[in-house]
Simulated scan of single mutants.
Amino acid sequence: MKRIHTLLAVQSVVAILVSINRLSPWTLGHVLPNEFLRWVDFNNMLVLPLISLTAFYLLKRQLSTILLRVNRGRTWRST
């Protein structure tokens, strides 16, 4: 259960980081000198979604492992 709570906490931290990223002046600079992409957009499009997707995948894998352990002893009968 500790791993599940940790992965859910990661998802919560990502949601908080998205809010901080959008509302703070720290990420208003531009990524490249041509001023095409700001750090706030870069973080919202690449960095934070990858962290969130990885945490979601690990959470899904953890839950399926637990489900397999629970169902290991059960047999399915057709009626």
Score class of each variant (00 low, 15 high):
residue 1 M to Q: 10
residue 1 M to H: 10
residue 1 M to D: 07
residue 1 M to E: 09
residue 1 M to V: 08
residue 2 K to I: 15
residue 2 K to F: 13
residue 2 K to Q: 15
residue 3 R to S: 06
residue 3 R to V: 11
residue 4 I to R: 15
residue 4 I to Y: 07
residue 5 H to Y: 11
residue 5 H to Q: 11
residue 5 H to E: 13
residue 6 T to E: 15
residue 6 T to D: 07
residue 6 T to L: 15
residue 7 L to P: 02
residue 8 L to F: 00
residue 9 A to V: 05
residue 9 A to K: 11
residue 9 A to I: 02
residue 9 A to Y: 02
residue 10 V to M: 03
residue 11 Q to V: 07
residue 11 Q to Y: 03
residue 12 S to Y: 00
residue 12 S to D: 08
residue 13 V to E: 05
residue 14 V to Q: 00
residue 14 V to I: 11
residue 15 A to C: 10
residue 15 A to H: 05
residue 15 A to I: 05
residue 16 I to E: 10
residue 16 I to W: 04
residue 16 I to K: 07
residue 16 I to F: 07
residue 17 L to S: 04
residue 18 V to W: 02
residue 18 V to Y: 04
residue 19 S to V: 09
residue 19 S to R: 05
residue 21 N to S: 08
residue 21 N to Y: 02
residue 22 R to P: 01
residue 23 L to V: 03
residue 24 S to P: 01
residue 24 S to I: 00
residue 24 S to W: 02
residue 25 P to W: 03
residue 25 P to S: 12
residue 25 P to Q: 09
residue 26 W to D: 07
residue 27 T to F: 05
residue 29 G to C: 08
residue 30 H to S: 09
residue 30 H to N: 08
residue 32 L to E: 09
residue 32 L to K: 07
residue 32 L to T: 12
residue 33 P to H: 06
residue 33 P to W: 02
residue 33 P to D: 08
residue 34 N to V: 06
residue 34 N to T: 06
residue 35 E to C: 09
residue 35 E to N: 15
residue 36 F to S: 14
residue 36 F to K: 11
residue 37 L to Q: 05
residue 38 R to T: 08
residue 39 W to K: 03
residue 40 V to D: 10
residue 40 V to I: 02
residue 41 D to Y: 00
residue 41 D to Q: 06
residue 42 F to D: 04
residue 43 N to K: 01
residue 43 N to M: 04
residue 44 N to W: 04
residue 44 N to Q: 10
residue 45 M to H: 10
residue 45 M to W: 11
residue 46 L to P: 01
residue 47 V to E: 04
residue 48 L to I: 01
residue 48 L to Q: 01
residue 48 L to E: 00
residue 49 P to S: 02
residue 49 P to T: 01
residue 49 P to I: 00
residue 50 L to C: 06
residue 50 L to E: 09
residue 51 I to K: 01
residue 51 I to S: 03
residue 52 S to A: 14
residue 52 S to G: 13
residue 52 S to I: 04
residue 53 L to M: 08
residue 53 L to R: 07
residue 54 T to G: 06
residue 54 T to S: 13
residue 55 A to V: 03
residue 55 A to K: 05
residue 56 F to N: 14
residue 57 Y to Q: 05
residue 58 L to C: 01
residue 58 L to Q: 10
residue 58 L to N: 07
residue 58 L to P: 00
residue 59 L to M: 06
residue 59 L to E: 07
residue 60 K to G: 07
residue 60 K to N: 12
residue 61 R to I: 02
residue 62 Q to Y: 04
residue 63 L to S: 08
residue 63 L to Y: 05
residue 64 S to D: 14
residue 64 S to H: 08
residue 65 T to A: 15
residue 65 T to R: 14
residue 66 I to L: 13
residue 66 I to G: 04
residue 67 L to W: 06
residue 68 L to C: 03
residue 69 R to V: 13
residue 69 R to N: 15
residue 69 R to H: 12
residue 70 V to W: 13
residue 71 N to Q: 07
residue 72 R to V: 03
residue 73 G to A: 08
residue 73 G to H: 09
residue 73 G to W: 11
residue 75 T to H: 13
residue 75 T to W: 11
residue 75 T to S: 15
residue 77 R to A: 09
residue 77 R to K: 14
residue 77 R to N: 13
residue 77 R to Q: 12
residue 78 S to M: 15
residue 78 S to H: 12
residue 78 S to V: 12
residue 78 S to T: 14
residue 79 T to M: 14
